[in-house]
């Protein structure tokens, strides 16, 4: 567990909670990223401006930290077919399951939603199983 970073995890997580609180208190909206994106899809577009603004802020916020620390932390250990396949599955799954790590995993759990609890336990469990099979069974 030498990679465990409890302090930055607690600080970063609290900021995510603060962001969700701000958006809910002032705008009455839940900070679920896949739901926010789903509302930008051509067939289901609604209130596009605030969604785009949030996404711009999301990228700028990460960019501010990158500029301040200069640490590149994004690296991948899989090839292109897996990147593409994983992306498509992530899009389909979060759309059909009505949420992702932020919508179900943060906002939904904070609202004590039984649907979000089931979804979160499911995607964390299946995610863990997927990594186990990929790394320890198939050895990729």
């Amino acid at each position: 567990m030498e990679n465990f970073t409890p302090i930055s995890a607690l600080v970063g997580g609290s900021l995510i909670g603060l962001s969700a609180a701000l958006l809910f208190a002032l705008n009455g909206r839940l900070a679920g990223i896949s739901g926010l994106l789903a509302g930008l899809m051509p067939a289901a577009r609604q209130d596009a401006t605030w969604r785009v603004m949030f996404l711009v802020g999301l990228i700028v916020g990460t960019g501010v930290w990158l500029a301040a620390t200069g640490r590149p932390v994004v690296a991948f250990d899989v090839g292109w077919p897996v990147i593409v396949g994983g992306g498509v599955l992530t899009g389909i799954g979060t759309r059909i399951g009505a949420g992702c790590t932020s919508g179900h995993g943060v906002c939904g759990l904070a609202r004590l939603s039984p649907r979000s609890l089931v979804a979160t336990v499911t995607f964390v469990g299946v995610g863990g199983l997927t990594v186990f099979v990929a790394r320890h069974v198939m050895g990729v």
């Binding site: 990223i33 896949s34 994106l37 999301l58 991948f76 899989v78 897996v82 990147i83 396949g85 994983g86 992306g87 498509v88 599955l89 992530t90 899009g91 389909i92 799954g93 979060t94 759309r95 059909i96 399951g97 009505a98 992702c100 790590t101 932020s102 179900h104 649907r115 089931v118 979804a119 979160t120 499911t122 995607f123 964390v124 469990g125 299946v126 995610g127 863990g128 199983l129 997927t130 990594v131 990929a134």
Partner: peptide
């Protein structure tokens, strides 16, 4: 749909390590 979607997302998440945010 909720559970099926979460399963599909879980596979994608586990494969690459990225969720939408």
């Amino acid at each position: 749909r909720l559970v099926g979607g979460a399963v599909v997302f879980g596979v994608g998440w586990g494969l690459v390590g990225l969720c939408p945010g």
